[in-house]
Simulated assay, not measured.
Amino acid sequence: MALPTVDAFERAGLEAWPGIDIKWDGSWVRRAAGGYTKRSNSVQCLDPEDGEDADLRVISASTWMVMRGIKPVFRITPLAAPELVETLDEAGWQEIDHSHLFAMELEAQERDPETKLFPVLDPAFLAAQQQLQGYDETTVTKLRNLLAACTVPATGVVVYRDGTAVASGLMAVAQGIVVTGNVVTDATRRRQGLAAAMMRSGLNWARSEGATVAALNVQAGNAAAQALYASLGYEHQYDYSYRIPGAR
């Protein structure tokens, strides 16, 4: 089985990790979600051939984001038009958060018996995320608002041990691809296989929802997470990064 194209992965990601306010400009998409994550609060180009008037479009998109109370951010993938990258380079935009997209064909996975699946707006899932991520109430509200915009099948995954939430993540299925995000493990209980148990349980659910491919994003510097995902069968597909205004 051949894995999907970069375009397919990126478009699935747009659905699985939504924006709240969205505006298209040709193949450039602007997304705002109250500032929760750069993925949902950034601009990206989905066609390398769509680079006309890149300088004016960067200004327009940046203004659009500022008017929504968020900082201008561009997500740069292999689909970004060269003219966009050149414009950002010339304006001195910094490159940050070099990351990878990992993916694999989705095969049968065994669900952990102490793992529970929740609707993404369920208070128990949000409480587990708040506890494990260390979120304050403002951040939890931003997460809740973003999840309320999700229109594809999605579930919150929480691993419990002795009644305590010890690992959690979010799974959403778009275009046959299950995209995983918000993976977190109790810092005092790492290297106990808890994140792997969470992943397998969520992927088990995704297969029941018709997913045939699994994908996720991981920062280039996070060797532990990359090792975990590789052990599950994920493989590196391509790189991406973000660009923000400022001196290089």
Rank of each mutant, 00 (worst) to 15 (best):
S62M: 04
G51T: 08
T5S: 15
M1V: 13
N182L: 14
L228S: 07
A149W: 05
D97K: 12
F125H: 11
E15V: 14
M198G: 08
R207D: 00
T151E: 15
R207H: 09
L84Y: 05
N182Y: 13
G51K: 06
Q44D: 08
I59D: 09
R189A: 13
R30M: 12
A108G: 02
E95I: 14
G169Q: 07
A172S: 15
T151W: 00
T63G: 09
Q131G: 06
N217D: 14
G13C: 09
V73E: 03
T212V: 13
L79C: 03
G193V: 08
A124T: 13
F125K: 01
L126I: 00
A148Q: 11
S208N: 12
A196L: 12
Y242K: 06
A165E: 05
W205A: 09
G69C: 03
V158L: 09
E107Y: 01
R31I: 02
G202P: 02
D55I: 06
M67S: 13
A103M: 09
S62H: 06
A211W: 00
R11L: 15
L228A: 04
L216D: 04
L232C: 05
T139A: 00
L232A: 12
D186V: 06
P18D: 04
L147C: 02
Q109I: 10
L147T: 00
V158D: 01
A197F: 06
P153V: 04
N204K: 12
E95C: 11
T141R: 05
K38A: 14
G92L: 14
L203W: 08
G51P: 00
A8C: 02
V173H: 02
N217V: 13
A247E: 14
Q130N: 03
W64E: 05
R248M: 13
E10G: 10
A154G: 05
M1K: 13
T139L: 00
R39C: 03
A211H: 04
S201G: 08
Q175S: 12
M1G: 10
V6H: 02
G181L: 03
Q131L: 10
H100V: 07
A12M: 05
A230H: 13
D47I: 02
T155P: 04
M198K: 04
Y36K: 09
F74Q: 01
Q130D: 00
A197M: 07
G176F: 03
L203H: 11
A149T: 10
L228Y: 03
V158E: 01
Y242P: 04
E114R: 10
A54M: 08
A165N: 02
Y36T: 10
I70N: 00
K23T: 13
Q44I: 05
C150H: 10
R189Y: 07
F118Q: 09
G35K: 04
L88K: 07
T164D: 15
A227Y: 07
S40H: 06
A54K: 06
A223F: 09
S60R: 14
A2G: 08
A91G: 08
V213H: 03
H236F: 14
E10N: 09
F125S: 04
I70V: 15
R161Y: 09
A80K: 00
E83T: 14
V120A: 03
A108Y: 12
N217K: 09
L194D: 04
Q131T: 12
E52K: 07
G246E: 12
D53I: 01
A149P: 02
N204L: 06
E105H: 10
A16R: 08
E95R: 14
A108E: 15
V179D: 11
A33G: 11
A230Q: 15
